[in-house]
Every structure is written in C-alpha cells, then in structure tokens.
C-alpha cells in the first residue's frame, strides 16, 4: 500500500454548514477518497452516510467517481453536491 497523501480538502456549501459548523477547509492525510470520507465523518458525524448519495469529489479539479483510485500526489480535493436533473 502506498503512503498517505496530504491533501487540502475544500468543502463546498451546503455541506460546510450542514456538517462542519461552517468550516470549509481541512488538511487530511489519506490514501484514497474512502480515507478522506472516513476522516470527514469523524469531523462531521453523519457525513459518510450521505456522501454516497449527495456528494461528488473533484481531485485537483477533475471529478473522480471511483473512491478507490489512489490519491498519489494530489494536492486538493473539493467536496461538491451532486447535480439534480430533470
């Protein structure tokens, strides 16, 4: 297994207020997005349950649907709400 990657995590509204008391920036060390989600869940209990349904993740600006892809030397993870559609 590769080493943890230290990423800057930016939580977009509405999740920042919904789960993290308005804080929207974190430094998190993780190997994959699963690790990021688990640690966010420690900081904002309940986040992990809803993340699967409501959240999308951009790694260095690119949306990454597969949470198991190694973060490698990524710098930034943005947590966004999924889009609804008609």
């Amino acid at each position: 297994m590769e080493a943890d990657c230290l990423v800057r995590v930016i939580v977009m509204p509405p999740f920042d207020r919904e789960f993290f008391g308005g804080t929207d920036r974190f430094e998190i060390a993780a190997k994959t997005l699963f690790g990021v989600v688990n640690q966010l869940n420690e900081l904002g209990p309940g986040f992990a349950d809803l993340a699967d349904v409501r959240a999308a993740f951009a790694v260095d600006g690119e949306v990454q649907p597969d949470w198991s892809v190694p973060l490698g030397d990524a710098k930034e993870v943005v947590v966004m709400q999924k889009v609804a559609g008609g």
């Binding site: 930016i10 977009m12 951009a58 600006g61 690119e62 949306v63 943005v78 947590v79 966004m80």
Partner: peptide, 10 residues
C-alpha cells in the same frame, strides 16, 4: 477556468 462547483471546467 474554475467552476462555481469548485472543480475546473474541462
């Protein structure tokens, strides 16, 4: 360019 969502436009 950055999008309002927080990601970069492709």
């Amino acid at each position: 360019d950055p999008s309002m969502m927080g990601s970069k436009f492709g």
